[in-house]
Amino acid sequence: MSTTSTAISRELIYQVAYETNKRAAIVVPQDGLAAFGEAWERESKPLAHFILGQILENAKLAVADARPMCGDTGLPRYYVKLGNEARIDGGVVALERALRQAVADVTQDIQLRSNRVHPLTRRNPGNNTGVFAPNIDYSFEPGGDWIDIIAVHKGGLFGTDYRMLFPADGTDGIKRFLLDNMAEFARRGLSCPPVVVGVGLGGTKDQAVTLSKEAACLRLIGDRHPDPDVAALEVELRQLANQTGFGVMGVGGDTTALDVHVEIAYTHTGGLPIAISQFCTAYRRSVARVFPSGEVEFREDPQWFTPYYRREGIE
């Protein structure tokens, strides 16, 4: 019974939050390394091939020196999945405090750039925290007594856009919007391609944007959506993104998108809202599951989009 499960300690949550932020900043996840390696192998343009090689070398040096893989260390943020039976010492308020503290401490210890500033005064607290910072997004899972802590360090300037399309626009509209997005942001490599593209399709406008970001950051490269129509669209859009030829850094090359992930949400019958987010070359994510026993399990797959999270019915 949930009432008898042991509470997860706030100290452990802090330690895991600290460690996931540290790893996110420094270590390129395995699926990213594999995808960069494949892109390097098949790249036909010499300059693009050279740059992809440098990206692989950079990934090695970052780990060897324990230094951030990119000088713009992005905006640290969290995705937290709570098992329905999980209990936290001090409750979710203690959890949020630990998560915020970990970002502040990692900023100093790992030497992240203090990117978070007041939008008007530009005042910088110097620790990547502040009003609504870091972002913390939640989802839930039936049955589990664990907490998943996912740290993502997402770039903050280029690659995201939203548009209200209409059902008459259909797949043509979706493809055009992807091409527009690439032309806007992959040109000169502003969004730092090769990217993982996340597409949020449907839902409400804010859901489309949120889902696009989660699709970009929280699925393994190569993963396909369980809905075959959505999966087919993913493959088609990935091919289209790569046909643009922007390539790594926008210098011209074969790989602009390592993958395209599409998430759908049921939407207004009259609309087809769409949002796109691009997860940059600095592919930064770390995932850990914390159990009430004190055990901690780091893993590669965020397992964020569970069947329950994407459920269609009432239950």
Binding site: I51, Q54, C70, V248, M249
Partner: peptide, 12 residues
């Protein structure tokens, strides 16, 4: 700068 994410190489 190149990559654009060659932060560790440049940091060194």
């Amino acid at each position: 700068t190149m990559g654009y994410g060659l932060g560790a190489i440049y940091g060194r």
